[in-house]
Write a protein that binds this DNA or RNA. Structure first.
Length: 444
DNA sequence: TCTGGGGTCCTAGGACCC
DNA sequence: TCTGGGGTCCTAGGACCC
């Protein structure tokens, strides 16, 4: 018992707590359905960038056997055979819908952690409410106000809440809400005994295999495993999971999102690219997006990375390479960052390959003006002085793009209508953020 | 023809220092 | 010349998440 106490005092506040996880069902598909009722009752998938593979599936699509991450070319024939509908992903729409959903959910608790685009934790501890009824109210309100179906799981820890949400989603008899905090220990154990350990939050494919080989095959097995042994054989992370399954909250709700420590921007090409100037254009475009994100969170980057690679699915010889370039002075100036990744690209580029993907990363990110040493000789490799003028320029660029729409102002190097741009042939309109596209959709 | 993108955290191992 | 141990810092890679 003292062990439990010391562990929980190190990692979080003591039990009992009540944490809810609210999760949008088939979120991307549900967003599409809100604006296109023809998608109702039909197998629908939303495709990854480049129309590559299915990243969201309606219940009907799951029922006809379409797997998560399945490539589109493998299932496309089901358009004819099963009335399948495949849509390009429309992240502008999804993130707007997400914000609306999170705003509604925030009214149900002063403590909210937005965990991903379609799910958030709410701390319901110490609130004098009927939690199950409240959870149903949450579902009803989100459904009624923005048209998105959800499920709610409640537990004494985040890991329990995740598991409860899984139960609420998979087992219709729970009617969309599973509250473990009102169950007796033996009832919880019976539920956990009926679920595979691989479903636990934090247990992926590799860990699942290793746990199975040790005879730990259900969630209950993991809950009952010796934390010390788990720590020794695996890691402190999985040990924490064991405690969390036991209802000892080790993970706190993080209601403020910390600034990103790295920012990636990368894309697969719509078709192979071999010509260096095209790659330069792509890398310039990606870096512009990454730098925008960097400035939005008020940070500067101390290093950049650029990578290119050919397709790993090709029979042709593979080539992939990356290079990291430290910056003498950390910066958020798109032009400086671009110059560096272009130099890096020239270094790793090899002629004679069909490249399928390129990307850039911003690393060594810190808050602007913190621990930053201004280099007396900061002409840098770029010939661009970090001056107040650069700052003004970036501010103006970001402001114009925020107001007039993305890509209104950009660097010449980004190119105009690049032929390598990703495929998005099955795109739905930006219903909620562009009045012209909404009008078009209504006219259809 | 056609297989996503963007994150975090932990650990092991090497370099370097005393 | 050879022999030791311990600490820190950094990086690369692996595992996980959505």
């Amino acid at each position: 018992m003292s062990e439990i106490r010391s562990f929980s005092s190190r990692f979080g506040t003591p039990s009992p707590r009540a944490i809810a996880l609210v999760d949008g069902n088939n979120f991307y598909v549900s967003c599409e359905r809100v604006f296109n009722p023809k998608l109702e009752d039909r197998p629908v998938v939303v495709l990854s960038n480049n129309d590559g593979c299915a990243v969201a599936r309606s219940a009907e699509a799951k029922a006809v056997g379409i797997g998560m991450g399945q490539p589109w070319f493998q299932i496309q024939e089901m358009e004819q055979t099963h009335g399948l509908i495949g849509l390009s992903s429309n992240y502008t729409l999804y993130s707007d819908m997400s914000q609306r959903m999170m705003t509604i959910l925030s009214q149900f608790s002063p403590q909210q952690e937005v965990y991903s685009i379609d799910e958030c934790f709410l701390d319901l501890s110490g609130m004098d409410i009927d939690r199950t009824a409240t959870a149903q109210k949450i579902r009803h309100q989100v459904r009624q106000w923005i048209g998105i179906p959800t499920c709610v799981g409640i537990g004494s820890s985040k890991t329990q809440a995740k598991l409860a949400n899984h139960i609420a989603k998979k087992r219709p008899e729970w009617n969309g809400v599973c509250d473990l905090t009102v169950l007796a220990e033996h009832q919880i154990d019976r539920l956990m005994g009926s679920i595979e350990v691989g479903e636990v939050w934090g247990v992926g494919r590799k860990l699942n295999e290793q746990l199975q080989s040790l005879g730990i095959s259900s969630v209950l097995d993991l809950k009952r495993a010796d934390p010390k042994v788990i720590r020794r054989r695996f890691s402190v992370v999985l040990e924490r999971t064991v405690w969390e399954l036991r209802g000892v909250a080790c993970l706190n709700l993080e209601d403020i999102t910390p600034p990103r420590q790295q920012i990636i921007s990368s894309r697969s090409f719509g078709k192979p690219v071999w010509y260096l100037p095209d790659l330069k254009q792509a890398v310039t475009t990606y870096m512009s997006r990454a730098a925008e994100k960097l400035r939005r969170q008020g940070s500067v980057a101390g290093a950049v990375q650029v990578f290119i690679r050919t397709s790993p699915f090709n029979t042709k010889p593979f080539y992939g390479n990356s290079i990291t370039l430290p910056l003498i002075t950390a910066t958020d100036d798109t032009r400086v960052l671009v110059k560096h990744v272009i130099r890096g690209l020239e270094h790793i580029y090899r002629a004679g390959y069909d490249y399928q993907k390129a990307g850039v990363m911003l690393l060594d990110i810190r808050l602007k003006g913190q621990g930053q040493v201004n280099d007396l000789f900061a002409a840098d490799m770029t010939g661009l002085q970090p001056t107040g003028k650069a700052e003004q320029l970036m501010l103006v660029m970001d402001a114009i793009n925020a107001r007039m729409g993305k890509h209104t102002v950009k660097l010449a190097g980004e190119g105009f209508k690049p032929h390598w741009a990703m495929k998005r042939n099955r795109h739905s309109p930006a219903y909620t953020t562009d009045i012209r596209q909404l009008a078009w959709a209504i006219a259809q």
